[in-house]
Write a protein that binds this DNA or RNA. Sequence first.
DNA 1: GCGTAGAATTGGTTCAACCATTTAATGGCT
DNA 2: AGCCATTAAATGGTTGAACCAATTCTACGC
Lengths: 272, 272
Amino acid sequence: MPKVYRHSLSKRRKVVVTSVTPQSRAEEAASSLLAYLASSKLTVGQRLPAERVLAEQLGVSRGILRESLTHLATLGIVESRVGSGTFLCKRPSSNEQHVVMTLDAQRDTLVRYLELRRALETEVVALLAQRATAADIAYFEELVNAVEVEHYTKGTAHESDKRFHLALYERVDNPLFLQILMPLWNVLEHLWNSPLGNTEVGQGTLPLHRQLVNCLRAGDVNGARASVTAMLDSVEQDLRTTDLAAQGHLKRAVPSTNVSDLFIQGGDSEAA
Amino acid sequence: MPKVYRHSLSKRRKVVVTSVTPQSRAEEAASSLLAYLASSKLTVGQRLPAERVLAEQLGVSRGILRESLTHLATLGIVESRVGSGTFLCKRPSSNEQHVVMTLDAQRDTLVRYLELRRALETEVVALLAQRATAADIAYFEELVNAVEVEHYTKGTAHESDKRFHLALYERVDNPLFLQILMPLWNVLEHLWNSPLGNTEVGQGTLPLHRQLVNCLRAGDVNGARASVTAMLDSVEQDLRTTDLAAQGHLKRAVPSTNVSDLFIQGGDSEAA
DNA sequence: GCGTAGAATTGGTTCAACCATTTAATGGCT
DNA sequence: AGCCATTAAATGGTTGAACCAATTCTACGC
């Protein structure tokens, strides 16, 4: 007979399968919340009951309930907006597992990201060459047009290029690819831009985009793979020539901590 | 002066580069905490200062500090043990991005997982065929021996098989692959075992393991790729024959929305 | 009809406790 | 000196009442 906590006994969860891990109340509340969301008819974008209501229904204090919500928010399932409420961002379902992936955006690890992207994107287009519908192809074509237009008018095509590639990940009918490639793309984007403003990587990939779409339409699996491979080769080449830090992708450079840490040291100081 | 919401804010908003994201105090505390961990000399497994101490140093209440810690705990960076303290699980570094991947462990989505695994693992072995050292090869060989031994003695080789494949992901000198494939493998493992106890998938892949290692030693990129492809084909075939739910993996649902979604929506209450 | 002032709602935050577990210190005993 | 039970911190876990600030809802007046 572990914890009892006199009040709130009425609301306590029925401990059916709790033979494992006695969990803290916050964790219990989080999983109860998850179960509630999975079973409720709430759709993405809708509002959850107020914190005070949820807390009472789950039989925990508001503070603990907020810890549970913080957990779910970190998982991207809910989002809170002050004064307005807590909203559902992604419908959870039972039997799902959340995994956090840490992407260390150091410039000297850029080649590793490209390796990952190569692995995923070649397979994506290979699958698309087999699965893509006519509507998909038309959509891709449209986006390629946009890429070319942006390229010839602005010199670069970052935005439309991103849209094109994300569209590929999206239409492959396997959400896992998008789940990985979207954040991966963000990191790469961040890496291109920040250290040396707007590096022009992948300038030579322009014609390959159209070529790729043609392969997809023709159902040419190998051709599609080759197009993507050529694209990434081009990008990698650009990096090697324009970036000194990218050479020797095995080098373990200095961690370079920096970043102002306005932390500790006697708590408060005036500093006006 | 108990009410001091602004005394700390006034000194916080200085010349700092935080041009955007007004962030809540909890988020500020979390990022400060992250910066502190990145700059401190704490090693994995060591204890952080007590919650009460951290809270005071960060200038937030303990409740808020705990929300920040919940966030970091969800990200797998820290772990709290009651009565003992909060401990560092993974050293964070600046410039890193955390991504949560949702793996929905439904049996009818198994094929999608295999698609992802195929994409990653073929590239892993292709890279290994180029990079693997003699020590790596020797290690792989050892693990293959273990696989065969376990297979011939126990009939199955789940454990040693897992060790073998994880070793591949680990030795490719790109931590990203391990980060994705490890949890992915766990989900697959869970899927094999739970619904119909210990399904014997991949029985025919045994000789392919040795073949793969031979290709790696010979630096045969295409051969290595082919070996993995054959393995996964075999697994997929087993699934198709033994599992009815895997049928129609091409069933096409409504194409999901584009990148930006999430918008407000008339408040609705009532639940449960 | 429409805009707006004011009330109600909601998330964000604080504080002062108390509990349960774990660890460190103590002190007596052999 | 060495051992172990007892006690005294120290620590995370949890509560409740309160207040703030942003948002939304309501109703009044024009």
